[in-house]
């Protein structure tokens, strides 16, 4: 690389992010979110004491992209594994990185009870309203009327019920300290998302309780959209059902 004198480097790969090509589809929201997590880990200076737990889902290979100690977990069980790790090493910073099927369907009990206990862990919850890894089936967060491979006529409430709002639900729990919903569909939202992820990690570092950031993410492949249309769908359609915002912020962070 040619170094040009007099110029300042303002953008580079976070140290915690490994220099490899990811397996994600073009236009996917995972890559952006991975980067935000890595930036926050770098900025907080916690790479050497951070542990990630990535269960089944598109991000199961997260361990290939982040340069931290990691568990690859069974479907839905990341909060339990994170709990086991955190109880052995309370000084480590432990986060789970879970999709909607993982966090809000098969692992709902583990998700809710990690929050109930006020477990000092952080969850990055990717809500893209679809099962990506298995090829586009209905997720617990699939919108009413949304077509998936298992709701070919669109999600019908009589048959498949309604999308679950995890942020609103978890915010009711006393053990949950920081709960926020963000998006990564445009620069504005990416900036907000990073701030929320940072606050979630800070909540854990201060030992205030459970923290969770729900990231509305785009899945152009399984939504059968162009990447641009997918980001627009997040903003114009998903956000109506899943409003952004901080649902719970510990007073220590205000």
């Amino acid at each position: 690389m040619v170094e040009v004198s007099g110029l300042e480097r303002v953008f580079s790969r976070p140290k915690s992010l490994l220099p490899v090509v990811t397996h994600y589809c073009p236009g996917c929201g995972h890559g952006i979110t991975h980067r935000l997590v890595a930036e926050v880990i770098d900025e907080l200076g916690i790479r050497e004491r951070t542990v990630g737990v990535a269960p089944v889902g598109c991000a199961v290979l997260l361990y290939k992209y982040l340069d931290v100690d990691m568990y690859e977990a069974a479907h839905g069980r990341a909060p339990a594994i994170a709990t086991g790790c955190k109880r052995v090493h309370p000084d480590l910073v432990v986060f789970t990185y879970q999709g909607d099927g993982d966090f809000a369907a098969i692992g709902t009990a583990e998700s809710v009870h990690a929050a109930v206990r006020g477990e000092r862990i952080t969850t990055i919850f990717i809500n893209n309203a679809i099962y990506g890894m298995t090829g586009g089936q209905m997720a617990p967060t699939t919108l009413v009327g949304q077509k998936t491979t298992t709701t070919p006529m669109g999600r019908m409430v009589e048959r498949a019920g309604y999308p679950i709002r995890m942020s609103e639900m978890l915010a009711t729990l006393d053990g949950a300290a920081y709960i926020a919903r963000v998006a990564v569909s445009s620069a504005k939202y990416v900036v907000q998302a990073k701030r929320a992820i940072r606050r979630a990690f800070e909540t854990q570092l201060k030992g205030l309780g459970y923290s969770m950031v729900e990231v509305l993410s785009h899945c152009p492949t399984d939504w059968h959209m162009t990447p641009l249309d997918a980001t627009l769908w997040v903003e114009e359609t998903m956000m109506k059902v899943f409003p952004l915002g901080e649902f719970k912020v510990p007073k220590e962070l205000v």
Partner: peptide, 12 residues
């Protein structure tokens, strides 16, 4: 189920 995965986490 959660208990055995807590064991997984702690043993790991």
């Amino acid at each position: 189920v959660a208990a055995i995965y807590m064991v997984f986490g702690a043993a790991g």
